[in-house]
Design a protein around this nucleic acid. Sequence first.
DNA 1: GCTAATTCCTATTGACACAGTATGAATACG
DNA 2: CGTATTCATACTGTGTCAATAGGAATTAGC
Lengths: 143, 143
Amino acid sequence: MRISTKGRYALRLMLDLAVNDNGEPVSLKDIAKRQEISDKYLEQIISVLNKAKFVKSIRGAQGGYLLSRRPEAYTVGMILRLTEGSLAPVACVEEDGSCERMQGCAANMVWRKLNDAVNGVVDEITLADLVDFAKRDIGEYMI
Amino acid sequence: MRISTKGRYALRLMLDLAVNDNGEPVSLKDIAKRQEISDKYLEQIISVLNKAKFVKSIRGAQGGYLLSRRPEAYTVGMILRLTEGSLAPVACVEEDGSCERMQGCAANMVWRKLNDAVNGVVDEITLADLVDFAKRDIGEYMI
DNA sequence: GCTAATTCCTATTGACACAGTATGAATACG
DNA sequence: CGTATTCATACTGTGTCAATAGGAATTAGC
């Protein structure tokens, strides 16, 4: 039931972009330094975010990345699902017909409830909420 | 965020034992047949349940397994944590000091909420609830 | 135009977990 | 004794994770 580093880093990356947004593009190297994450690994992750148009990139010297929408427009769920893939605890919760024992499977109830609980959390928290939290409760903009 | 087959099979196994309990030990072969799971793989899984005294075993011919407590005494969380290991989405949620960036990590809030949501589900459902559900809503005792 | 900084793209790697299979020993009922 | 069963351990193929590596393409600033 772990969230992999890919999803975790993606969230921190987006949060870093949101917090350090001043209109200028933010370079990946800076993010990597602040977040203490391998920049080469971050490259792969931001490439996914870029292809999904979650961020926009500016190439060349003084280039970097910017959020393409306001922080309120991203839920944690959007970011995690994009980078992690599905958050469902088992396949049968979302793919119809992935399990022919489905009708008659009591365990299925557990998975559905788990799925709902997880979605309930990640789809309710936006990047803006996290920025608020970081600024208010943490003070410094550490992420 | 997947639950592996180990945890899933363990839950079905325990449920099968609960549903098919008539005082006599239930052989693993029968469970494997009903659940359509490799009996050799189930052996490994039940060995974990056995060592944790979740089931008791009776060796030799006509042997098998029995739940060692009443179904109400097992939560889904107990079974999944035993077989899957921790259900926490990230290590920092449960191990103090596993992340030195913790204070100041806004993302941490997400992980804590996720953890609470997951625990809220799995620790509230007991094996007895699943047995009820199977008998009432499903009719046949398929699992 | 040149250089340096940056994004972009693809391949490779080592470690580990997953999902079983395989083999045989120990035990106990009839 | 023979058969059914649990118990213990080792092995294996596949895939994912978490990077690392190398270089191509692009662009700002001098």
